[in-house]
Design a protein around this nucleic acid. Structure first.
Lengths: 105, 105
DNA sequence: ACCTCAAATCCAAAAATTTAGATGTGTTTA
DNA sequence: TAAACACATCTAAATTTTTGGATTTGAGGT
């Protein structure tokens, strides 16, 4: 079964914000705690928390609590899944253009 | 030079809407004129036009005028470009986590 | 128990997006 | 030239998202 269109939109929505793209970029290769991201991007704490929730809910990022701190990191499988969604877009499936049957290329 | 974060956000924003995802799905494999999309999705004409503009501006879709009609189709290179953007996210670049040096896997 | 800190959640205001009717533009047909 | 058509653009209202201060929760520390 293919992923629901709601889930797809949710993932792309998480990526559709410059701040969140910057956060993802910061998480490349290593996890970071919320305060480090907040300081580097100079965001109010509640605002950072809001964006991290969107990233986590989309599946692109995971969080890990450790004592008082929350560490965030890239969820590789979530990102690979997202990349796959776009790759299917320019794929010819056939059958949608009867008037063009046999007209590939 | 890597694509600006604004351009990336613009592309993902175009993908972050269920209607637009449906439109992209309709365009798989063949071009369609605006009226066909409008009828199939049952959208007011101005609304369809609004969404098509977002898709075109993002580079995911191209338009072609032919007389009174406008035909839309997937812009493969735009989609491949978008897929590539996500693939780079979970890529370890190194250098961002000095305290974890040599700690891969 | 009390205080501090990290972070989530609440909430109302601000900003941005989306909607859909009205209007404008360019094309085709009569 | 006029009328019909396809579509873009304009516009204001409706809706959604984002912001940021205040509050809450939960984990240490003293």
């Amino acid at each position: 079964m293919s992923p629901t269109i709601e889930k797809q939109a949710k993932i792309f929505n998480a990526l559709a914000d410059e701040r969140r793209l910057r956060i993802l970029s910061m998480l490349k290769g290593c996890e970071r705690c919320a305060c480090a991201i907040k300081d580097e991007l100079d965001l109010p704490q509640s605002s950072l928390s809001y964006h991290m929730k969107i990233l986590c809910d989309s599946g692109l990022v995971t969080d890990r609590r450790e004592g008082k701190w929350t560490y965030y990191s890239i969820n590789r499988s979530g990102c690979m899944f997202a990349a796959g969604l776009i790759e299917t877009i320019p794929t010819v499936e056939g059958g949608c253009c009867p008037e063009r049957k046999g007209d590939e290329q």
